[in-house]
Amino acid sequence: MRNRTVPQPSMSFEYIMWMFTRISGLALLFLGAVSLVIALAMGARQLLDMPTLARWTFFPNPNHVVNSKIPDVTQGWANAYWQIMQIVIAFFGISHGFNGLRVIIEDYIGNTIWQPMLRGLLFLVWLFFLIMAVFVILAS
């Protein structure tokens, strides 16, 4: 059987977002695993209880571990690396969720004026959430 290939269609918005959904979902799992492994390497088994470790895993914010047995969170638990991790996790998480809402709008709102209006509103709320998330992460 001959190998058959065709030039890929030029990237449509739907295709990009379809890929993004999959990539961001996997990225969130990967980033969670990274946070968990590093926390365990920093002694989380002795320093954190299970709920605190779970909160840290999916959002490695120092406020989540400040009331644990960690003597000083500024030593390894609160630095620029974790801030970048939080921003990346917040970006993937918020965008993944809001893209899901966009798909629901496109599925259930027909070809009416409501669809572009709701999509526009959703874009603004997504942007607001991202800006707020970055602000909270950098300020904490």
């Binding site: 065709v6 269609p9 739907e14």
Partner: peptide, 19 residues
């Protein structure tokens, strides 16, 4: 014409409406 059909199906109302 596979490329043309794939282009048609990759639009807003194509395969990505399948969940």
């Amino acid at each position: 014409a596979a490329a043309e059909r794939l282009r048609i199906l990759s639009n807003q109302f194509g395969v990505y409406r399948c969940h």
